[in-house]
Write a protein that binds this DNA or RNA. Structure first.
Lengths: 326, 326
DNA sequence: AAAATAGTTGAAAGCGCTTACAGCTTCGTA
DNA sequence: TACGAAGCTGTAAGCGCTTTCAACTATTTT
């Protein structure tokens, strides 16, 4: 069943059917009704592939992210997908993990499929192997980077002010009398580097002590690290992390050692994911505006696709969410 | 830049370029090298759209799910996406919420885009409005239903034995001396109905008391419901739920009421999501085999696409994961 | 009533590929 | 040396649409 079959049965040309299907050009009312009747009769669905041949677009965008099982990416991706669907776009989801090669593979597949744009969520911190393909792609389609940063024509970035967020965290804890900070971060992403920078700035500004450790993603790694630190006699009265889950690992370990939170040690997470209300005591954290980030990313993209000028970089302010661990 | 440009520069016909690109047919080594050199020179990426015109496939499948922010769907979707990418397929992600109309819209978009198959994750329990479109689609492409059930040619289902899982839960708690069950479930999906059935069977089999409530998705709804029950003097010594998050809501409420878990009341969740290790005490739950479910779904799909015969229904056994709340 | 205009329709080209088919070359074998 | 088979390559058709352009019809305008 194709447009010819419809045209034949409706006794019109395929051009007319096409016009009815796309509501483009002028079609007499009576003709339109004739065509629509046949369309309905067969429940006809035109082929986006064939349309794509001409328009060179499938109204599809690719979203390249680390791992959708991580609540952060899930929330951002959901927001993007929903915003796009309103505009009639579909979303191809790509989970790359931290594997650059896989990321490059995915990018190639997306280019092959002629996506209208690619949204990268959570880019690694400046990987030159990635720079070249991305810049090449950007010559043909716009690229949006969520929580990354890229100064380049046709590449737009939308991100949360992570460094400021961490400064706010430190400030808050300093105001609560904390002086010995522990910072645990779990991934070397652009966002991760921003947080780290914010943390470092803040501790030096407030002249408080700090130690920084990179731990693996997940609750256990954080738990084990804190355990190791406690057993080695390391002293701290505040734990900050780049992720809620990491904070919960720390929190669990502190509790296991009968250390009162927030009495003796304060703990703060990051992202305000649902995890933060699941643990006990509930976790103070940072609302990193996941939903808004996705929404704005699509807004920027939409502007660009319409040919309007869009801000090449958008920064959203995060907010502290204070609960029971501080 | 298209296949003609490559052919011209390599001094061959487009047919030869096509053969090199797809590694199909016979091409002399020297010719292949000539073509590959040009291909590399321009970093040529063929258009999947044009290819799709002929092959009628974009090597893309659609996954239609409720909400990727829910860890259950995120895990299943991740597993599906990863398994598919190994086979060279991309995944279009659709979050429909519980809105049937939106689901139908998405299905239509997927059909338009000529996906090779649609994987439905978490279907509502027998909605006739959905039956017709699904059956119609299945006449053209295979449909896989994960955690749903559908007796129909070209529709395959892969699901977890949820009813058995709940029976196991009840059994486990009965063996711990529990006699007054509370069951909280949060969504009227096929899976939800299976769990409910399993629960009902088990309580009647063991001749224990039970009350069942439908609550909204999320921690708060469960918290409030349990709170209401406790304040009205309702007595129970075990809480079962259809979701980890619901269980955690209950758990938090019990703790707030100074009720010892698992001393006085046992709590069990469902899914073994990361949430279950975040709460305190850590949650006993059911491993609903999210990763495996996705993997098997793709395995079945792959068989079908290759034209092999596949089992129309696959059932995977769940496993109890006992932690501190039982 | 004629002319100008606007509205409506269809023929045909082409989007960038795959693939059947035919023709040509090369090679092995009698 | 000749002939058939096998390997290689190109021509051309076609996938199902959109869109331009020209032609034709209805509606105004003068």
């Amino acid at each position: 069943m194709n447009i010819y079959d419809i045209a034949r049965e409706a006794n019109v040309s395929i051009a007319t059917v096409s016009r009815v299907l796309n509501d483009s050009g002028n079609v007499r009312d009576i003709t339109r009704q004739k065509v629509e009747a046949v369309l309905k009769k067969y429940n006809y669905v035109p082929s986006a592939i064939a349309r794509g041949m001409m328009t060179n677009s499938l109204k599809t965008i690719g979203i390249v992210t680390i791992d959708i099982r991580n609540l952060y990416y899930a929330n951002v991706a959901h927001s993007i997908e929903q915003s796009l669907s309103v505009l009639g776009f579909n979303t191809i989801l790509c989970n790359t993990g931290y594997d650059i090669e896989q990321k490059i593979n995915y990018l190639r597949m997306l280019v092959e499929k002629k996506v209208d744009s690619i949204i990268l969520v959570g880019s690694p911190f400046k990987d030159p192997n990635l720079d070249e393909p991305i810049e090449q792609i950007s010559r043909n389609i716009p690229i949006i980077i969520v929580n990354g940063c890229y100064e380049h024509p046709n590449i737009y970035s939308v991100r949360c002010n992570d460094s400021k967020a961490l400064e706010k965290c430190v400030e808050h804890l300093v105001s609560k009398g904390r002086r010995n900070f522990l910072y645990l971060y779990d991934a070397e992403t652009f966002s991760g580097s921003q947080k780290l920078m914010g943390f470092k700035n803040a501790v030096s500004k407030h002249n408080v002590k700090s130690e920084i450790f990179l731990v693996k993603t997940g609750l256990d790694a954080a738990y084990n690290k804190v355990n190791e630190l406690l057993e080695s006699g390391f002293c701290f009265d505040a734990v900050l992390t780049s992720e809620d889950l990491t904070a919960i690992g720390a929190l669990k370990c502190l509790t296991a050692h009968n250390i009162n939170v927030p009495g003796e040690v304060s703990v703060m997470g990051f992202n305000n994911s649902v995890l933060s209300i699941c643990c006990t005591p509930s976790l103070s954290t940072v609302d990193s505006k996941m939903e808004k980030l996705g929404r704005i990313a699509v807004k920027v993209l939409h502007k660009v696709l319409k040919g309007e000028k869009a801000e090449s970089s958008t920064i959203i302010e995060a907010e502290l969410v204070l609960r029971e661990t501080t």
